[in-house]
């Protein structure tokens, strides 16, 4: 497949293209391959490459999940539940903020838009450690029991630029005349927004959703500052299991997470492609 692809394109540079593509694939796939192989190790400790293969670490992970006492401080089940809940909340809040915001910024235009875009992009360029400290200081100064929101709020700030950017690029492609056409046919503005703008923004919204979900689910740096004994996420749990000695069950867990991520991306991609095929 590759040879036919590269023999027809790029001419005499096809070798360079082939080399760079292979390198890129290798770099991005290598960690996944290593982790997956090691998770099937039969050895007592994690080493690469494993001498023998088995499912023992998957069994260990399952045992940990099913026999988990909810009273234990660093419960895997609790961490998983918190992670999913935080990610879902972050995803919903970010979307509900970003869809109207993207509309307002694109339709508003001009100087306001440039300024606001910059403002919402700030968390991207801010060093995450400092961002974590900043949120921690804010949370402490509030002296409130924020519960799960002490993670949700910083996560929303972190994913906002990604969701906003996706929504805005989708919004950019929607001609104002389409909206006006709906209005001229008798739709009130909210109706036109729901009937025409939101469906046309759908690919951008879905892409934003998946970004929010994955970024929040995998977030470590800020969460490391913000987590408490009651509110902790999966990455924190995994870190606690690897910081002194590497528990191979963590590798099995991450293989599971990768699988879920891939399935999710495939589903979203299918939805977006199904939508795009209309054009």
């Amino acid at each position: 497949m590759f040879s036919s692809l590269f023999s027809t394109r790029g001419g005499s540079y096809s070798f360079v293209i082939f080399f760079l593509t292979t390198l890129g694939l290798l770099i991005s796939a290598l960690p996944v391959i290593v982790v997956t192989l090691m998770s099937f190790s039969a050895a007592e400790t994690a080493a690469f490459p494993p001498a023998e293969y088995s499912f023992r670490w998957y069994e260990a992970l399952w045992a940990q999940l099913s026999s988990d006492e909810s009273s234990s401080a660093h419960s895997l089940g609790d961490a998983m539940f918190t992670s999913v809940l935080v990610a879902a909340l972050v995803m919903l809040i970010a979307t509900f903020v970003c869809v109207p915001l993207a509309y307002a910024l694109v339709r508003g235009g001009g100087r306001v838009r440039a300024g606001m875009e910059l403002l919402f992009t700030l968390p991207l360029v801010f060093p995450l450690v400092i961002l974590g400290i900043a949120f921690l200081l804010i949370a402490e100064s509030l002296a409130l029991d924020l519960g799960i929101w002490r993670l949700v709020i910083p996560h929303v700030a972190l994913v906002l630029p990604f969701v906003l950017r996706n929504c805005m690029s989708a919004m950019n492609g929607i001609d104002i005349e389409i909206e006006e056409a709906a209005i001229s046919l008798g739709a009130s503005w909210p109706r036109a927004f729901l009937d025409v703008v939101v469906p046309l923004m759908k690919p951008g919204i879905l892409a934003g959703l998946i970004f929010a979900l994955i970024i929040s689910f995998n977030e470590f740096t800020i969460t490391f500052f913000m987590y408490t004994i009651d509110v902790s996420t999966l990455p924190i749990w995994m870190y606690s299991r690897t910081v002194s000695s590497l528990d191979p069950a963590v590798l099995s867990l991450s293989v599971g997470i990768i699988l879920v991520d891939v399935v999710m991306i495939l589903i979203i991609d299918k939805i977006i492609a199904g939508r795009a095929s209309l054009f």
Binding site: D175, E177, I183, S184, G186, A187, R275, L278, F279
Partner: peptide, 20 residues
């Protein structure tokens, strides 16, 4: 009277058909 209550039919320069 707001535009959606005027009951006019309009054809736009871009035609503005709903692509979805």
């Amino acid at each position: 009277v707001p535009p959606h209550k005027r009951g006019f039919g309009m054809v736009f320069q871009s035609l503005a058909l709903f692509p979805h």
